[in-house]
Amino acid sequence: MKKFIQSSDILKLIKDGDTLLVGGFGLSGTPLTLIDEIASSSLKNLTVVSNNLGEPGKGLGKLLLSGCLKKAVGSYFTTNRDAIKAWKEGHLEIELIPQGTLAEAIRCGGAGIGGFYTKTALGTKIGEGKEVKEIDGEKYILEKAIKGDVSLIKAMKADTLGNLVYEYTARNFNPVMATASKIVIAEVDEIVEAGTLSPYEIVTPHVYVDYVVASHYVKVGGVYVESISPD
């Protein structure tokens, strides 16, 4: 049986200096409730691995403004002007990784693989200083796997075992992040009885999921808004 917990309980699972893998592409597939909890906590020096840092004041953008973050690792931060400002002022470290390399590094992290050789970024500024290896006449660079202390992911539904299904393109980085941290917490819109989800539709098997939290957000007009009566 999975542990179904309140969102505030997650603060006991995260400590200062932790690396958090946070699902989402922009705001889609982002665990907004879990981020809100951390943003209102006194946690410090967190490193976040996520494709983006949300939008100004939204999703991970909120976490940035709360001052919990030391470093962001991801592929595209230009869409959040607060991230650019924090970086310029020296309040935020940024590590830029090509999107496909980010996804594969996390996949490796969860798959027991230490790193991988890729052609992406070979000969570029991002590839500088990385080991170059020739395999069967083609050149690649070495990228190390990425692992986290805690993964914060978002799914559409969980069953009571913790199996997860995702909505449309909100899947993005969530399934790989579910495999790559010591503790995995999934925020979901709906919890259903085991057996309700078809085995064909389950994307993340429950083996990866440690905790499930019900989202405080509801979808109105295709966009998540904070529910008036959380929990």
Binding site: S75, Y76, I94, P98, T120, A121, T124
Partner: peptide
């Protein structure tokens, strides 16, 4: 500022 690469290199 170089703060975005996305999927361009891939």
């Amino acid at each position: 500022d170089v703060l975005g690469v996305g999927g361009a290199m891939d």
